[in-house]
Design a protein around this nucleic acid. Sequence first.
DNA 1: CTGAAAGCGCTTACAG
DNA 2: CTGAAAGCGCTTACAG
Lengths: 340, 340
Amino acid sequence: LRDVAARAGVSVATASRVFGGSERVNPETKARVLSAADELGYVVNGLARAMTGRGPRMIAFVTGAMIGPTFATLAAGVESVAATSGHLLSISTTQGSLEREQELINMFREQRVAAVLLVGSTGVGIRFARRAVEYGKALADVGAPLILCGRPPLDGHPELVSVDYDHRAGVAAAVDRLVALGHRRIAYAGQPLGMTTPTIRRDGYRKALRRNDIREDPQLIVECDNSEADSARAVGELLDAQIGASAVVGMTDNIAVGAFRAARARKLRIPTDLSVVGFDDVPIVGDLTPGLSTVHPPFFEVGVIAAEMALGLRPAGHVLLEPSFVERGSTAPPRVVTPR
Amino acid sequence: LRDVAARAGVSVATASRVFGGSERVNPETKARVLSAADELGYVVNGLARAMTGRGPRMIAFVTGAMIGPTFATLAAGVESVAATSGHLLSISTTQGSLEREQELINMFREQRVAAVLLVGSTGVGIRFARRAVEYGKALADVGAPLILCGRPPLDGHPELVSVDYDHRAGVAAAVDRLVALGHRRIAYAGQPLGMTTPTIRRDGYRKALRRNDIREDPQLIVECDNSEADSARAVGELLDAQIGASAVVGMTDNIAVGAFRAARARKLRIPTDLSVVGFDDVPIVGDLTPGLSTVHPPFFEVGVIAAEMALGLRPAGHVLLEPSFVERGSTAPPRVVTPR
DNA sequence: CTGAAAGCGCTTACAG
DNA sequence: CTGAAAGCGCTTACAG
């Protein structure tokens, strides 16, 4: 900058002003500075500018792993608003390591990010809540809000803003639809509890059963990893038990696809012999045979809203978006309609 | 920092040294500084540190869109090495806008990033090459290499480093396999040329035909968008033309899935009546019925290697990784084996 | 509209 | 091992 100023025959203050943009500078001198900069191949040092508090701050996005369209779509939403306002998006993963998570928070404090988005499911329970509260405080020290995305707000901590979609309502809508089709023996396959998403989604299942006056049968609830293979195993065992399940709702599309596999291995037709619904609406899943009926969460929107809060473009607060149920070919009336 | 130093009764120089880590400090004074920092809730200003040339620099990742596992897996590879060396990963999209692309490059110059990774297919032709060369020069001014990922190097510009996987060999391996199964009328469905990936993958198809002494038939090559719907249309027309195609290789899994759909709509069984192969090996595709035989590209590895080059952990250069063909259920001998 | 000066928060030779 | 001082590259009141 000093060199540019010298070459243009002005002070660094003036030169700074032409790049800073804000203040009024004589068009002529401005041109002179600009051409000097051009000749010298000058490019402002954004780091120095950032230090003085000017310049855009980064939005930090931290998630467990860069897996699947959940991640990609949500991140795309964040990036779309970051881009239009000249901010950069930093993405990091914790790989499930609390140590790494803590390191990242420290790093973001040092970097003076605009906000940090904690994305996706996390452990339930006081331990995890406490950690989030710590992070929130630490970040607040440097003026950065902590925004929970795709995970529920913390009881008793309204200061920790959250942007989420209604897992419960999503699963419940799927169950409602199955009930409307005539199903009564509706199974549920999901990950073991302990993380927010498994807990809340199963909660939606139970809630929907209750409001439809269907008694919950523990035998109809099976646990598995969030993988096709393990789901095929778990749902397979359920089917082998012959306890009359006419439909299964998978906690995720992965799990639903595992149910497809289990059914096929037993020569059961979908949806004639077994209805299956998923959750997430990942690509391709609509092109299975039959297409998977599933819950479509507004991932992109979640990202957009979180980013807007991060940048102060929208008042911070708790937002809960509605997912929608998209019915494709994997749901139909049961073979035998049990009277209600 | 000044406050911390004062409270600890040392100079800022000494205080700086305890946080900088490098220099040797008396353990006792160090402890004193640390506890002073703790009491004051001090956290180093990474921005200021960055300005002095210390502190980790960001890796910039630029892609057209945050779409699909291609993006996510490659980014995960980059992030894994960034994480272990304390660097941050910034991800941005161009959405196909050259203007936006240029803006990003400028932004990264200002931010003094460690390197920028240009990820994914781009236009072919001198215009695009020229742009990349410009970017490379501009970035070199600030000491940042430009690394092309998942796209080929530029003729005559060895200074533009690239990390890619061998699209040609991947498609060719798939074709070879089909030929080995007895296919002779092998169709190809892909995007129109103009971008590197469509061009190179189709090239792989033609090359494989040639080396298997199969004459290319222009009627067997159809164009479509990279979407299931448009692929279903294009492949459908091909099938309706009844020109004896016994197999189709899709430029991507999306396109291959479109071929599934087209075949089904015409009551053709896969693989009995039609063999289908894809490219990318995205999730779920293995769980179609039948599972899709496809080419698995080493996306994660590409990301890892590019990141290592970005950080100087590995000599910059041109790397070409081998994809592997994974055969599942969508490939089988043709109904009628044409003599070779 | 422009300049001189102080300051942002750190780091690093250079001396002790 | 530690301190005083200069410097990194910008920005911003404060005066003109």
